[in-house]
Amino acid sequence: MIDDTMVVIRSYNTITEAEIAKSVLASGGIRAEIRNEYMSTLYPVGVMPAQIVVRSEDEQAARDLLAVR
C-alpha cells in the first residue's frame, strides 16, 4: 500500500507507539501503514523513527483522530 500518494502524518520512536496509533486509525475506519517498521527497531531511538502513513485523502481525518488521543 505504501506509494507516492501516501502521506506521513506522525513519527514515533518505538514500534509499539506506532502500532497503537495504527490501531486507533483502524478503529476510525482509516487504513494506515507503518513505514520503517523494521528499521526503527535496528537503529537507536530517534535515528530512524517508525512513521504512520495514510492516503492523502485521509490525512486530515487521521490527524484529527490522533489529536484526540
Rank of each mutant, 00 (worst) to 15 (best):
K22F: 01
Y12F: 15
E33P: 00
P44Y: 00
V45M: 09
R69A: 13
M1F: 02
M1G: 13
R35N: 08
A50T: 04
R63Q: 11
T41L: 13
I15L: 15
K22E: 11
G46D: 04
L66D: 09
D4S: 14
A26T: 04
A21R: 11
A26N: 08
I15A: 09
D64F: 06
L65P: 07
E37H: 03
E59K: 13
L65R: 13
M39R: 00
K22M: 10
V54R: 01
V54F: 01
R31F: 02
V7Y: 08
A50I: 04
G46Y: 04
E19M: 08
I15E: 05
D3C: 10
I9E: 13
I2K: 09
I15R: 14
A67L: 10
E57G: 03
S11M: 05
Q60T: 08
I9L: 11
V53W: 01
N36H: 10
V54W: 01
R31W: 00
T14I: 12
E57V: 09
L65F: 00
V53P: 03
G46V: 03
Y12Q: 14
D58Y: 02
Q51C: 13
L25D: 11
S56R: 10
L42H: 06
A50G: 06
I30H: 06
V7E: 15
R10T: 08
L65M: 15
G46L: 02
L66H: 07
G46P: 02
I52E: 12
M1K: 01
S56G: 09
I30F: 06
